[in-house]
């Protein structure tokens, strides 16, 4: 059996706007895959194509070994989906909606359903129109997680949840992975992807810019280095290959080092003596900025 999701060269136009422009995405069976991109980069469109709601204009795609457009109904028995913008029927209660969606997928585990309702502090007796955005999202999440699907497609599932519920969500995703399920998690919240994903695909303007394991991606990027020296920094530091955004304030040094330049930087610093040294791998925020070209990492984050 191949990958759970295999997409190559996906193209989709809406009128004159090109939403997807040759997107590639591969999700292996059993992994939690992060699908990252800024707003409007084509994440939701990709998911809607994978669900057979929208037809691709060009490109090859396989979902669980089948064609998402022609075999939609059969494939949907094996997956569960949480939309980014959850809309509920205004006069059905949350509990009724969860049961309905579960039964349509071929039945749901009652014990597990009740457990999840409890876990996410969801009141299942309220009508759809009375729920807040976060609570609507919880209804969709409980319906998806209580099902026995092989594949979970989650579109920014935590954008309305509070931090407490977000950590419940992360724990749930980890549990799903240990049960052998495949998860595609679309997000622009990098901390979440860092916390739960094995591999990520980063897209921009409908095109894949990077894909791989988090460890490999970090490898591609710079390391943030902060050091307190015994004396004033050596003058040769600024001239070294791979040193960026160097800031010197008395005896303290702050800079970013490209992967190949670390040896030389450390040797140079050691010539004057090092009191403290902090090296941190770049966060996904920094990776993101590298790809999306905000330019000055100094303004980012914090």
């Amino acid at each position: 059996m191949g990958a759970a999701i295999e997409v190559t060269g996906l193209v989709k136009d809406f009128g004159r706007t090109r939403a997807l422009d040759g997107l590639d995405l591969t999700v292996e069976v059993g992994e939690v895959h992060g699908f990252l991109g800024p707003n409007g980069s084509g994440k939701t469109t990709t998911l809607r194509i994978l669900l057979g709601l929208v037809r691709a204009d060009a490109g090859a795609l396989r979902l669980l070994g089948g064609d998402p457009w022609t075999e939609a109904v059969d494939l949907h028995r094996r997956l569960a989906y949480v939309p980014g913008d959850v809309a509920l029927w205004p006069n059905l209660t949350g509990g009724e909606t969860i049961d309905l969606l579960g039964r349509l997928r071929g039945g749901l585990d009652r014990v597990r359903r009740d457990e999840l309702v409890e876990r996410f502090h969801l009141d299942p007796t309220r009508k759809g129109r009375a729920y807040s955005k976060g609570n609507r999202q919880k209804v969709a999440l409980v319906a998806a997680l209580a099902s026995d699907a092989e594949l979970l497609l989650l579109d920014e599932p935590t954008s309305g949840l509070d931090p407490l519920m977000e950590s419940e969500f992360r724990a749930c995703v980890a549990a799903e992975r240990s049960r052998g399920r495949t998860v595609l998690l679309s997000s622009h919240i990098l901390g979440e992807v860092e916390a739960v994903c094995d591999r990520v695909t980063i897209i921009r303007e409908g095109r894949t810019v990077e894909t791989g394991a988090l460890a490999e991606l970090r490898h591609l990027a710079r390391t943030r280095l902060e050091a307190e020296l015994a004396d004033r920094p050596p003058p040769g530091l600024a001239a070294l290959d791979g040193v960026q955004e160097l800031e010197i304030d008395g005896t303290s040094v702050r800079c970013q080092v490209e992967p190949g330049g670390m040896d030389a930087v450390l040797r140079e610093l050691a010539t004057v003596g090092v009191r403290t040294l902090t090296c941190a791998p770049p966060s996904l925020e920094e990776l993101f900025l590298g790809y999306y070209g905000a330019g000055d990492a100094g303004d980012a984050g914090d």
Partner: peptide, 26 residues
């Protein structure tokens, strides 16, 4: 005032047809 509803769906609510009827019956 809006009243609370059932926490579980009635056993008949298990198909798209049943949902359509439920949404339109009022």
């Amino acid at each position: 005032p809006e009243r609370a509803g059932p926490a579980r769906a009635p056993s008949g609510l298990r198909s798209p047809e049943a949902l359509a009827l439920r949404l339109q019956r009022g």
